[in-house]
Every structure is written in structure tokens, then in C-alpha cells.
């Protein structure tokens, strides 16, 4: 069972992927096997600092194993490296659904 999370600009699977990790408006969680999905607003979006650290903490608390996003900042990177969460890169022209399809077909590049 793979728990996956994608940073998104909106709440729908048709929304575009958000390429910033810590400042993403929404996190969309997907369970690859069961197909279950859940969209959660990013609790650290408006943090004055350390948004990436807060987001990494949130992912660990949620038990996420794979993250799909555009770019991870330096603080979030050092936090994520400690977690064993695999990070795959998407770009801003992709919709969340396309990013998911690309991931399952093995077309996304692992960035961390």
C-alpha cells in the first residue's frame, strides 16, 4: 500500500500541480491501491518561516511514503531526507491527475 501526496493549487484532481512544497495551498493524498483520495489545506501555507519544515512534519504525521511536487527548499530537503519519503518531480503545467498517471507509469523523475 503506497500513501502518496501531491502538492496542488486547488482541491480537485483537475487542479494544476503546485510546484512549491512548503507554500502549496493544498495537499492531495492518494492511496494508490485503494484509490482513496483526500484533499487537505496546507496548515503551514502562511507560516512566516519554516513552511517547508512544517509541511515535512505534516507528511510524516500522515504516514506519507511518496511526495510529488515541483521543488523542495533547503530546510524541507534536510527534513525530508531524514524521513525516507521519496520525492518525485512534477511541473506546473501538469494537472494532479496527470501527475498521478505519470507516476504510476514510472514517468516521473525522483528528485530526492
Amino acid at each position: 500500500m503506497t500513501k502518496l501526496m501531491i502538492t496542488s493549487t486547488g482541491e480537485e484532481l483537475d487542479s494544476l500541480v503546485e510546484i512549491r512544497f512548503g507554500r502549496a495551498p493544498y495537499f492531495i493524498f492518494c492511496n494508490v491501491e485503494s484509490g482513496e483520495q483526500e484533499c487537505v489545506p496546507n496548515p503551514g501555507k502562511d507560516a512566516s518561516g519554516g513552511a517547508g519544515v512544517k509541511a515535512a512534519q505534516f507528511l510524516v504525521d500522515k504516514g506519507v511514503e511518496v511526495l510529488i511536487t515541483g521543488k523542495v527548499g533547503p530546510h524541507a530537503e534536510s527534513a525530508l531526507k531524514e524521513t525516507g519519503i521519496k520525492v518525485y518531480g512534477a511541473d506546473s503545467s501538469m494537472r494532479v491527475k496527470e501527475a498521478l498517471d505519470n507516476f504510476s507509469q514510472g514517468n516521473l523523475k525522483q528528485i530526492l
Binding site: G49, A51, V60, H75, E82, T83
Partner: peptide
Amino acid sequence: AFNALAVLKEKIIFFEHM
């Protein structure tokens, strides 16, 4: 309040600059 501490499973990371 400044997200300077992350507790990731059995690992704590402290970001001193924050």
C-alpha cells in the same frame, strides 16, 4: 511558532537559524 524543530519518527532536527 517558527517551525525550527521537526520531530520525524525517531529523529529530531533543529534548524538553529530559524
